[in-house]
């Protein structure tokens, strides 16, 4: 009998971190959120992108968009307000200048799309549907910084209309990004599930405002903006929890995630994956650090698949 059969396997447990979002398999549940990671290239020198579960790109509109008047950001307690207003290169600029690099990165590429009328969302989605190297579409139906930007996710009928139209032109996994600025986010999630969305992501930013008391001027050019960062995390965990009670499609949790523990909270509340947003600005390696942290956590807790954590909250 050889020695190896007498001793326990010395290899440490290597947990399976993979998760699925509809037909999309992610190597791990850690994505980077739209608007906080550009088009991937900007952080490529600082972060090993291939270690991320995926990259969600900045919202694309049919044409390049100038965005809102500055100032566009203000720091707040454990958070920040932004009023960017969807400044982006436009779908053609993305396909020409940004996508070729993203296609070479070994990670899922989820393209976030936006627009004013439904036709604009459809136009962007149709154009992207022709491209290789795109693994999913996230629908920004919840931007608080453009006129009417939140309309699609504050009214369940409008939300369903948008997703129904996009479902007809998109075979890729379709993810509806929801606003927390509603009374019942579960109801909106339910309506997009019925309309054919493969997943929901929640939450987008909370509407907020800050004022300079000396000048009495709002600190943002857009007057109000969207609040993000650790300040909103408990709100986001509760949103994921509420949505999980109402839908069967996967939930991607977003909101103030800065650490492995934060990510775990979302998974246990019911999220199948998470997105790191504002934390990328303060530490670009937050996402890859969380991937390593999840691996360590699972190994220490004897968890063989991270999927067993999803929605595992122990509620009396």
């Amino acid at each position: 009998m050889s020695r190896s059969t007498l001793t326990p396997d010395p290899r440490p447990l290597t947990p399976d971190l993979s998760v699925t979002i509809g037909s999309l398999r992610l190597k791990n549940p850690v994505l980077v959120a739209s608007g906080t990671f550009g088009y991937g290239t900007e952080y490529a020198g600082l972060v090993d992108l291939s270690r991320l579960g995926g990259i969600v790109t900045k919202t694309l509109t049919p044409e390049a968009w100038p965005g809102n008047d500055p100032p566009r950001a203000a720091e707040t307690a454990a958070g920040m307000l932004n009023s960017i207003g969807l400044q982006n290169v436009g779908v053609e600029g993305f396909i020409r200048d940004k996508l070729p690099y993203l296609q070479t990165v070994d990670t899922a590429v989820i393209v976030n799309i936006g627009g004013g009328p439904i036709e604009e969302f459809v136009a962007v989605a149709e154009r992207l549907a022709d491209c290789d190297g795109i693994d999913g579409i996230e629908v920004n139906m919840s931007c608080p910084n453009v006129a009417g930007g939140m309309d699609f996710s504050t009214d369940p009928r409008r939300a369903a209309q948008l997703i129904t139209r996009l479902r007809k032109v998109v075979d890729l996994p379709l993810i509806a990004k929801l606003t927390p600025n509603v009374t019942d986010i579960g109801e909106i999630a339910r309506s997009v599930e019925e309309a054919g969305a493969d997943a929901v992501s929640a939450i987008n930013t909370l509407r907020g405002m800050a004022i300079d008391v000396k000048t009495r001027r709002p600190k943002l050019g857009g007057i109000t903006g969207g609040l993000s960062g650790p300040a909103i995390k408990p709100v986001a965990v509760a949103a994921v929890w509420s949505i999980a009670r109402r839908v069967t499609i996967p939930i991607i949790g977003i909101g103030g995630i800065m650490s492995t523990e934060d990510a775990l909270e979302f998974l246990i509340a019911g999220a199948a994956a998470i997105q790191v947003g504002t934390a990328n600005f303060v530490n670009p390696k937050t996402g890859t650090d969380i991937v390593a942290g999840l691996d360590t956590y699972c190994a220490q807790e004897g968890i063989t698949s991270i999927r067993s954590l999803i929605g595992s909250a122990r509620v009396p």
Binding site: T36, G38, Y43, A74, N280
Partner: peptide, 16 residues
């Protein structure tokens, strides 16, 4: 500028 990211992704520190 009021500059959250410093590397061009957040689009906050713009000037006309």
């Amino acid at each position: 500028g009021i500059m959250p990211c410093g590397v061009g992704v957040c689009m906050a520190c713009v000037v006309p």
